[in-house]
Nucleic acid binder design. Structure first.
Lengths: 243, 243
DNA sequence: CCGGTTGTTTGATCGGAGTCAAGCTACCCA
DNA sequence: TGGGTAGCTTGACTCCGATCAAACAACCGG
């Protein structure tokens, strides 16, 4: 085991651990080879843009490591962080598959590596393996469901409730359960970015955090959050009818 | 031409004028025959429910006439009208294609007829004609784009600007251009429903309408709206940087 | 024709959250 | 090491829009 070092020079589709959980899990080895041979890999620094709202897609990106944010903005400079994508996830499929322009920008939130798979390769894969198209369909459908839920939340919940919900999502995605029943998360985002995810300002975000601390819902220190009781957190946005 | 009366007993896919503008336009006659023979048609009265949030889809609906609203609601009774669908449009594809539950309810807003196409038929069509799947993919992708835009609008625009935008959408979809350059629309919705489309209350809706009348942006009488100048209307939500 | 239900309008009030302004912290790099 | 730049926090103020309440209009079934 020590003879042949397991060193891998760069991202490799065959060894990618995340692939099993994504659209690409339906691919056979031969098909994977197509991607592996055709892809172009690149590193992005935090803040760097992968593609910009309005651009025309030439292919699809796949995140090898790091975290990418999808951000939409209007003429006056208002922005919303619509989605977070990490390791193994696909990026830019919506516009590509719909044959339209990007309607949001993608930017690296951490140092990240992403692979680019060009149009001819994707096209060949889709023709060769119809299950891949169906996978993407499901993915877009799920995203649509999430977006609809966000719309409802934005109009019916307070900033505090929306933030509690966001924290709960983070707990599910990045949280570690401690032995005493409390959860802890390393937030993947700045407070500013969290504010723009729930559609509020950094000032309101800051005040909300402070209040939740004094209420014992969560303890914040830097980007680390301790959640003593997930039940209490859930109650913030999904209040129990029965006490 | 008078010998053979063109009378059609019920909805018929072959004579459906709206089909050309929908996903089904890619179907051949033989494929259309499959739907035509397998579909079940039904009438719905205003307020009647076609399917309910949480139900499991058994097929896809297609609107033959009338107007259907997609409504999402939470436990506390808050609701949002997410989308309007009319003649020829497909309904319930998201949950069906994603193999998940409905995440919104569909209800008739006018007297409507809808056809139901069952799972086996859709499955056969998708296998037989891959273009249909691609069409649906585009449709979901477009819906997702719309949803994202709505999220951004809800956080960055005022009730008035959001309503102006909604009116503009109605002008594009249902508007008639008068000879003097003004547009007129027969609103497909009650004020309550418009309020829930832009995420506000009937009271605020009413006040907003009144203000826009006094400002000369639009003239409301019942469900009919006159828009003297679309330019002015657009300015409400997309203010010109250059005067 | 009337009483009931549902939708719309109007008024008065209140509060959540945005805005503006200023100080604070942390980190980068010259 | 220190100054510069982001990001974060805090305070004071304002205002949009929700809420509560009530009057009104419109429509429907009996």
């Amino acid at each position: 085991m020590a003879n042949q070092p397991l060193f891998v020079a760069g991202p490799n589709c065959f060894t990618c651990q995340a692939r099993e959980r994504t659209e690409w899990c339906v691919l056979q080895d031969a098909e994977l080879r197509l991607i592996e041979d055709g892809k172009k890999s690149r590193r992005y620094l935090p803040g760097e843009t992968i593609f910009r709202e309005g651009d025309t897609p030439d292919g699809i990106f796949c995140i090898e490591s790091g975290m990418i944010g999808l951000r939409k903005s209007d003429a006056e400079g208002n922005t919303v962080l619509l989605n977070l994508l990490s390791e193994g996830e696909t990026l830019g499929y919506r516009a590509f598959l719909a044959d339209s322009e990007y309607d949001a920008s993608a930017e690296a939130l951490e140092p990240s590596t992403a692979c680019f798979v060009d149009r001819p390769t994707i096209r060949r894969l889709l023709e060769h393996n119809p299950a891949l198209g169906l996978r993407f369909l499901k993915r877009v459908a799920k995203d649509l469901g999430d977006a609809d839920e966000k719309i409802l939340h934005n109009v019916s919940l307070s900033v505090r409730a929306r933030f509690a919900h966001l924290l709960m999502v983070f707990v599910e995605r990045y949280g570690k359960l401690a032995d005493n029943g409390s959860s802890s998360i390393d937030l993947p985002l700045s407070r500013q970015d969290m504010a723009s995810m729930i559609g509020t300002t950094p000032e309101s975000m800051s005040r909300t955090i402070k209040k939740m601390e004094t209420d014992g819902i969560a303890r914040f220190s830097g980007r680390t959050v301790q959640i003593p009781s997930c039940r209490n957190l859930v109650n913030e946005f999904d209040p129990e009818v029965f006490v």
